[in-house]
Design a protein around this nucleic acid. Structure first.
Lengths: 341, 341
DNA sequence: TTGTAGGCGTTATCAG
DNA sequence: CTGATAACGCCTACAA
């Protein structure tokens, strides 16, 4: 409750002198400072961030968007590390994080939401559905709001993104399968809109081509990062291509249900058939068999995103550049040499 | 950039009329309204939440505390559902969530942080270390800031908490073990400061007493919800009480490492020895063997916490009451009848 | 070194 | 129905 004004009255000094003191300006008499500080402490003063933000046009807050409801990024294990990293980095630099959750304003645009709340910057953690709001993303990209997206290729004067090297990662996965002797490798991809889905598919295709294995469209299906879809597609693939020896699923969660599905069909992984995932989420170690997969460096993605955002906020001039982080092959138990070798 | 003032100038009406219009007051001439709305749209007007908050003393923001660094609640699977639920509930009621992460102000007290940011209420998600800041918790509890804590017994005029019925849950766990024929049941508890640790320990003890099995202090150790500690204690227990047939660990994470530890000692779970957990975190289904445990209804805890907080914010009068939610026994594979039966 | 005055964008009170 | 005018709490020239 104690305001700068009350301290001024109590101390006998003016509001501005009190303000200067509290903000550690140097041009304040030592004794004056002492007295004011003393009184401030007595009155248990704390600055009102809202008032300060209003005049300074700086909130020391960065906004964060997740998908809404069903598809909340918060519920996806992949985003956890990212949030954690962003939080750490932002915290160190004196920022708090505002989670945009107000459903009352669902008709509002991302940009408007940011402006209303006057956040200093924003990080986008949108999954599936969220990425479809392309007009909104365009608007944000063209606004001057500092922004870093995860896995969404936004590019603007103050806007960029962080991603994994999905292409190389996928390629590595397939190369590994090939190195183990697999020749008929099924692909359960993501969707047709997200860049990461596209890149992983290209990686799969190019690996096959470079190994002169040819590319059979009948081996490729889209799973939309959905567990039920993934199972359906696995069934479809198996029905049409019974000689498949390995599945490359573009997410660990899909890989997991595919393994369960195969088991239910009486096939053992990896003895009868191999399965590879992508992401390396925490649970992957617990899957049975433990999942061989491609690790995305999630924490690093978050750290980078935060740093770039901070940099963009601090410096009007520099235009942020996209960052692509390397993936890593994690060999565990779900891939083995195919039977006939 | 467009402010209410600019709209006033452009439209020829006064600031107050514009404000009333924008806020859907009824006492505005239809034509006036139309014109103003038109211009507002043209100028792409959006209200400045900061300015509004300043005058209304209401930010439509609720604060959220997590532990700091190493012990961040964000990193603990248990809290995820809670956050998710709080987010859902708060969003529906028009609130955004502010994650307190600013490390620059680590010397500040919880209460001060809330006041500075003028959050309308706060939910506490503190783990281990965080709970030790008792003076701060007392201060918050005695402040008039609407507050709901998870698993921390705060009680004040505008402050309360939500927890699971840990006592009954633990009792149920032990009763189940007993029903399976176990007589020498080791206990790996939490810490000596948290209520939930205490309650679970009491549940364990009472279940033994009520079954007239007696209570051997040598069977009880504290694991502090730490993986390494849990393993150490399991080793200690086994060394001193080789006839143990079951371990009851008060968290799934501890149960998991205990299982791994037992395996490394050449003991199979549950054939040679049984293990029970507590929490039912997502990963528990993936443990091998799949973990038998006590489920906390995490999502419901979050929902309740949010509702109570909202209620407390809206109504100065009602004093919030603590809520204790029932647990649920989840039988999977990690418990079997002991060998000698 | 200190004080005065204006303003940040809104809401709210009170005349007219 | 509309318009001054005064807050909200703080910062920041500019003056003194």
């Amino acid at each position: 409750m104690a305001s700068i004004k009350e301290i001024a009255e109590r101390s006998g000094f003016s509001i501005s002198t009190v303000s200067r003191t509290l903000n550690n300006y140097t041009d304040v008499n030592a004794k004056t400072r002492e007295k004011i500080m003393q009184i401030a402490k007595e009155m248990n003063y704390y600055p009102n961030a809202v008032a300060r933000s209003l005049v300074q046009k700086k909130t020391h807050t960065i906004g964060m968007f997740f998908g809404n409801k069903e598809n909340s990024a918060l519920d996806h294990p992949f985003f956890l590390d990212i949030v954690s990293a962003v939080r750490e980095e932002m915290g160190n630099q004196g920022y708090d994080i505002l989670l945009f959750t107000n459903k009352t304003k669902e008709h509002s645009t991302l940009t408007t939401l940011c402006r209303e709340r006057s956040v200093d910057g924003v990080v986008l953690l949108l999954s599936g559905e969220g990425k479809k709001r392309t007009e909104q993303l365009d608007e944000l990209q063209d606004s001057n709001i500092p922004c870093v997206a995860i896995d969404i290729p936004l590019v603007g004067d103050r806007c960029t993104y962080v991603e994994s090297d999905n292409y190389t990662g996928a390629k590595e996965a397939v190369n590994y399968l090939i190195s183990q002797g697999h020749r008929t490798i099924a692909f359960i991809g993501g969707d047709e809109i997200s860049k990461q889905s596209f890149d992983r598919m290209r990686g799969y295709q190019d690996a096959l081509m470079e190994n002169k294995l040819g590319m059979d469209p009948m081996l490729m299906r889209l799973g939309y990062f959905s567990k039920t879809r993934a199972v359906e597609e696995a069934g479809y693939l198996l029905a049409h291509k019974p000689n498949i020896t390995a599945f490359f699923c573009v997410s660990d969660q899909m890989a997991n249900v595919v393994i369960e599905f195969l088991n239910s069909r009486g096939m053992n992984v990896p003895e009868d058939i191999s399965v590879m995932g992508f992401d390396d989420i925490k649970e992957a170690v617990y899957f049975r068999p433990r999942l061989t997969t491609i690790r995305q460096n999630k924490y690093e993605m978050g750290t980078q995103a935060a740093r770039i955002l901070l940099q963009t906020i601090d410096d009007e001039a520099t235009r942020p550049e996209p960052v692509t982080l390397p993936c890593e092959l994690v060999i565990r138990e779900s891939v083995a040499k195919p039977r006939h070798i």
